[in-house]
């Protein structure tokens, strides 16, 4: 078996809180709890979770925009020093959620595309033009767009430019942070299909972050479900939502609106996320969980294998 494209070991991130003048510093907000997983080369790993579950913090650590508190990130053989984007950017690139705001409004598309080629590969003008032309052809954009400014583009076109910029660094891995959630459904499908084509052509590995379960299921090989900064379940995309082991995954799957399923609120109580400043002991989901018992409120469950290719962190997993 070849080395995985990406390996996370005991990665976590705690944001410190300001220390009050006359009291000891509070423990800080644990945005991402200790997590470890691997992504094989060429795989699309979906990452789902609701707002506040640590998806974006995880993504920013992976591309080096944020230094992790503990743990390491390895790319195949290489393990660049954490928190330094320049060391990461030839290995891993990022596609932003809001395509317009990720493009500098006062630069032409050509200047935006040139930046990684010049900074990372030191290409001269002729080489850059050739490379930009190649990339633009692969994302179905016309070269006449190069001398325009970002505000002249629709969301779908701007997102293609964002993808083109990520490709310009020739990375092996691309982190896609909600790449289609700002787009209309008809354009969303265009971009998702383009991403699938690019992955095949360039042998890329994707980390696809989204809150939309249906989109994640449609594009991913495996899916990681996050809740309150921790991994609660990992499994193959085909099975994880059909046969969830963790009650939270089941809740997510039951909540997604599906044509032909009658409207039912899977939980009636006005349940909310736990307070990140004052996390509960034990399983973070216990307060919302119909299967919770005493052990759930005292002991944090570890991620353990359940069935083939599926892992869940639960004391009382759903058996079928």
């Amino acid at each position: 078996m070849t080395a995985p494209a990406l390996r996370l070991t005991d990665l976590s991130k705690t944001f410190p809180l300001a220390k009050p003048l006359f009291a000891p510093a509070p423990p800080g907000v644990r945005a991402v709890r200790t997590m470890s997983f691997e992504v094989p080369k060429g795989e699309t790993l979906g990452i789902v979770g609701e707002s506040g579950c640590g998806k974006s913090t995880l993504a920013r650590m992976l591309v080096g925009l944020l230094a992790p508190t503990t743990g390491t990130i390895e790319f195949g053989e290489a393990a660049p020093s954490p928190g330094d984007p320049a060391a990461f950017c030839k290995l891993i690139q990022y596609v932003f959620q809001d395509p317009i705001s990720s493009l500098n409004p006062r630069k032409t598309i050509r200047q935006i595309m040139d930046a990684p080629l010049k900074q990372l590969y030191g290409m001269d003008r002729a080489e850059r033009d050739k490379r930009v032309a190649e990339i633009f052809a692969s994302v179905n954009l016309r070269e006449e767009f190069l001398d325009r400014y970002p505000h002249e583009f629709s969301g779908g076109q701007a997102q293609r430019i964002g993808i083109a910029r990520a490709l310009a660094a020739s990375p092996e891995i691309i982190v896609l942070d909600e790449p289609v959630s700002a787009l209309d459904v008809s354009v969303q499908a265009q971009v998702l299909n383009l991403l699938a084509d690019l992955r095949r052509t360039f042998g890329l590995t994707y980390l696809f972050i989204s809150h939309d379960l249906a989109v994640v299921e449609a594009v991913s090989d495996r899916v990681v479900v996050l809740y309150f900064g921790a991994v609660v379940e990992i499994g193959r995309a085909e099975t994880i939502f059909n046969a969830p082991k963790h009650p939270y995954t089941k809740l997510l799957a039951d909540s997604a609106p599906v044509v032909g399923r009658p409207l039912t609120a899977p939980e009636q109580k006005g349940t909310e996320l736990p307070d990140p400043l004052n996390p509960p002991p034990g399983c973070a989901f216990a307060g919302r969980c119909p299967r919770a018992t005493d052990i759930c409120r005292t002991e944090d469950p570890a991620l353990r294998p359940m069935g083939d290719d599926q892992l869940a962190a639960c004391h009382h997993p759903i058996e079928d």
Partner: peptide, 23 residues
């Protein structure tokens, strides 16, 4: 076409039907 391009949970991994062009 619009219904076809919305992925639906439970459909598994697949290629979506996109509508070319822009509104």
């Amino acid at each position: 076409r619009l219904i076809a391009c919305v992925p639906e949970l439970g459909g598994g991994r697949r290629r979506l039907e996109a509508i070319p062009g822009l509104p």
